[in-house]
Design a protein around this nucleic acid. Structure first.
Lengths: 121, 121
DNA sequence: CTTTCATATGAATGATTGTTCATATTATAA
DNA sequence: TTATAATATGAACAATCATTCATATGAAAG
């Protein structure tokens, strides 16, 4: 992440507010929490995964329906679903040989909608 | 993004709902929009950038204050600020030799808070 | 049990990306 | 103008990642 070598410090603004770095870092979320936040957004940061999630906005879908809808291979979709599953963004249920995927919860929808809001301005 | 070769199709579920891929893809946001969405979330998908944005939650900061707060080099911070600037997530103003960065708008806060909500459950 | 079919996964590969190091830019102070 | 200080940037490198291809798994039908 970063070296623990000497880190440069100091500029007029900095020197006139020597308390700032400490005071800011005290109000920061924990390193753990910020790391998890980044990991969460990383899941949304790929257009294949976004397209999968958007497809699941409509209804639950089996893997090959997603592949067909997005015009991608079953394998590529399956790999991405695994990542979305591990990140608890999608859930699934078995129906015979088929596995049906759906959005894990409404946060997924909310976060994506928030992103759409930001873009459309 | 994907090959235009033959894409496999078909499973019982799929065959019993042949209209699904088309009907789902018609309700999808445009490819352009989904691409932009992924690009947006990519900006939040790095822990250095998340830490920078969280630091700016508190107050506007110059580059070396951010570097000092996060214990990283000026160069690393500057590179990431460039990415955040290009993505319109931060704005800046000059004050002498110093450049002060701040959050571009409240969407940034909202999106991050939405992410925090998701994590804390 | 064996075959079939939907899905999952491991290895390989090319592409993208974050950090470092060295250097450039830009504004101020001397 | 020259020197200094804050920030920016280009090239290089290592690490991460998405897709492909080949193959494995697991449920169900025969």
């Amino acid at each position: 992440m970063h070296t623990d070598d000497t880190i440069e410090v100091g500029c007029p603004n900095h020197d006139h507010h020597p308390e700032v770095p400490l005071s800011v870092s005290q109000k920061l979320p924990s390193e753990e929490e910020m790391y998890l936040l980044a990991e969460l957004f990383k899941l949304f940061g790929d257009s294949t995964r976004i397209r999968i999630l958007c497809a699941l906005f409509e209804r639950e879908l089996c893997v090959c329906q997603i592949a067909d809808t997005l015009e991608m291979t079953q394998s590529a979709i399956s790999h991405q679903l695994r990542i979305l599953k591990q990140g608890s963004l999608v859930k699934f249920r078995r129906e015979g040989k088929t596995i049906l995927y759906s959005l894990a919860d409404d946060h997924v929808r909310t976060i994506i909608n928030q992103g759409i809001n930001h873009i459309e301005e």
